[in-house]
Simulated scan of single mutants.
Amino acid sequence: MNNDIRCLPKEDAKINCTPLLNKEFNSKFWGFLHKLWKKFVKIILADPNELQVWQKVDRYGNIYWQAYDPATGKSFSSGSQADVYMWIEQLYRY
């Protein structure tokens, strides 16, 4: 039986493959850690009674806004930033 499988010498494999894989992995890994750290800091520093407003993107790529007032337990969601501002004004007007 004839075996046609050939392997690169260890040094060549390291030069040809490893740096590319490590560079891509490191970039994704550090990007993930950075996002995780930002979320952690945001949670730690947030005042639990403060009005929260954030922007989200749905699975179709549409951008919308959400707001939540922990003092009243009320929330609001809209595709318009102006609508969220009006909701906040109405919430605190009374």
Rank of each mutant, 00 (worst) to 15 (best):
R6I: 14
N49D: 11
R59W: 04
Q90H: 10
G61C: 05
Q81Y: 12
K35G: 03
W30C: 01
I43D: 13
W54G: 03
Y85I: 12
I15H: 03
G73M: 03
C17E: 07
A71P: 00
P19Y: 06
P70I: 14
K14N: 13
F29N: 15
S80F: 08
V41D: 07
S77T: 15
N49W: 03
N62F: 05
D83P: 01
N2A: 07
H34L: 09
G73T: 08
N26S: 15
H34W: 02
D69Q: 03
W54C: 04
P9L: 04
M1C: 07
D58A: 04
L45D: 14
Y68Q: 01
C7P: 00
Q81W: 13
N16F: 14
Y92V: 03
L20H: 14
K38H: 11
F32M: 14
W37F: 09
L45T: 12
W65K: 02
K10L: 09
S75F: 06
R59E: 11
Q90L: 12
D58H: 02
P70D: 08
Y92M: 01
G61F: 10
E50P: 00
S27H: 10
W54N: 11
Y92D: 01
F25E: 07
W87H: 05
R59T: 13
N49C: 04
Y92S: 02
N16L: 15
I63N: 03
V53K: 02
L91D: 02
L36D: 06
F29S: 14
E50A: 15
K74Y: 03
P9F: 09
W37K: 14
P9T: 13
V53T: 13
L51W: 02
L8S: 08
Y94G: 13
K14E: 13
D58N: 15
Y68I: 01
Y68D: 01
V84H: 04
H34C: 03
G31N: 15
N62G: 01
I63E: 11
P48E: 12
R6V: 11
E24M: 05
W54A: 05
V41F: 05
I15K: 15
T72L: 08
C7H: 13
K39R: 15
I44N: 05
K39L: 10
K10I: 06
Y85E: 14
K35Y: 02
G61V: 10
A82I: 12
E11F: 08
A71T: 09
N26R: 11
N49S: 11
R6D: 04
S27E: 13
E89N: 13
I43S: 11
V41P: 00
Q55I: 09
I5L: 14
F40E: 09
S77A: 15
F76N: 07
M1L: 06
S77P: 00
K56C: 13
Q55R: 15
P48F: 12
K28P: 01
V53A: 08
F25S: 04
E89P: 00
S77E: 09
Y94H: 10
N16Y: 14
V41N: 06
L91V: 04
S78T: 05
N3Q: 09
S75I: 01
S80Q: 07
W54R: 08
